[in-house]
């Protein structure tokens, strides 16, 4: 299949960027979206041009490194997958595909389609960990945990921190990410010990970094490749309110 690509090109963080049109030919329907970009880059390198910079790592949908805002949606037209899991059969022959970087003040563009997502690391550093001594590995059933809570914590922990929630949100809010990280600890006994401090510290850091406010549009949930639920946001609000009041 042949495609017309409109790709955001920006030489460096402080340089002005613009959309550049490219054509790719005879792309297999079975190629992944990133393989299609690899083919384009190979052609660009062969022509002596600068290849398009984009983030990627595991290409298995588990590392959270790939991004890309494709035709108006983070991670492209499919739901519950990352860009690396997106295949070209989802596009029509001759289609124009617009590829943009995540857009948010705390996610500045580094180059082309790569954005700096270290703001997420800073939020984690503010409290997304357990610092109490939990000792060695306990016996499997030594700490009783409700099955429901174990499942909810696991679902929240599935967040790979890719930033699609921020990219999709009309307010560039990071609430889904932060709430998943708050929830995965708040639901488990080891995490509960520091839950009050954690939620306040992480929310404060999120605000300082310049993410927008949540207006409950739920676009984040619709675009999350790991299907993190907005019930985590409600849980975080609840945790925050309880922490502030007590």
């Amino acid at each position: 299949m042949d495609l017309k690509l409109k790709i955001w090109r920006q030489p460096s963080a402080h340089a002005d960027g613009k959309f550049v049109d490219y054509q790719v030919h005879e792309i297999s329907k079975d190629a992944s979206f990133l393989e299609m970009l690899d083919i384009l880059n190979e052609e660009l390198v062969n022509k002596g041009e600068d290849p398009v910079a984009f983030d990627h790592d595991c290409r298995e949908g588990i590392c959270g490194m790939c991004s890309l805002f494709i035709n108006g949606r983070p991670h492209g037209p499919d739901t519950a997958i990352t860009t690396c899991q997106l295949h070209m059969r989802r596009f029509k022959d001759g289609e124009t595909v617009t590829i943009e970087p995540w857009r948010a003040k705390p996610f500045p563009v580094i180059k082309d389609l790569m954005v700096d997502r270290s703001a997420f690391d800073e939020i984690i550093q503010a409290g997304g960990f357990v610092s109490i001594a939990t000792g060695g590995v306990p016996d499997a059933n030594a700490i009783p945990i409700r099955k429901q809570n174990a499942d909810l914590a696991m679902d929240a922990a599935a967040c790979i921190g890719c930033g699609a929630c921020v990219a999709a949100c009309k307010n560039a809010s990071a609430m889904l990410f932060v709430s998943a990280k708050v929830s995965q600890f708040a639901l488990l006994p080891q995490g509960k010990v520091e839950a009050k401090e954690r939620v306040q510290m992480m929310v404060a850091r999120m605000d300082e970094l310049g993410f927008g406010n949540c207006t409950n549009t739920y676009a984040c949930e619709a675009e999350c490749p790991k299907e993190i639920s907005v019930t985590n946001i409600a849980r975080m609000n609840r945790e925050f309110l309880v922490a502030k009041l007590s």
Partner: peptide, 27 residues
């Protein structure tokens, strides 16, 4: 205040309008 902060959080918008499924009136 919330709206102004939300506008500031995305200084540069997308070229292709976001088409994510979301609560309609929330927008």
């Amino acid at each position: 205040i919330l709206q102004i902060e939300n506008w500031v959080a995305r200084p540069k918008g997308y070229r292709v309008k976001a088409i994510s499924e979301e609560s309609f009136f929330s927008k």
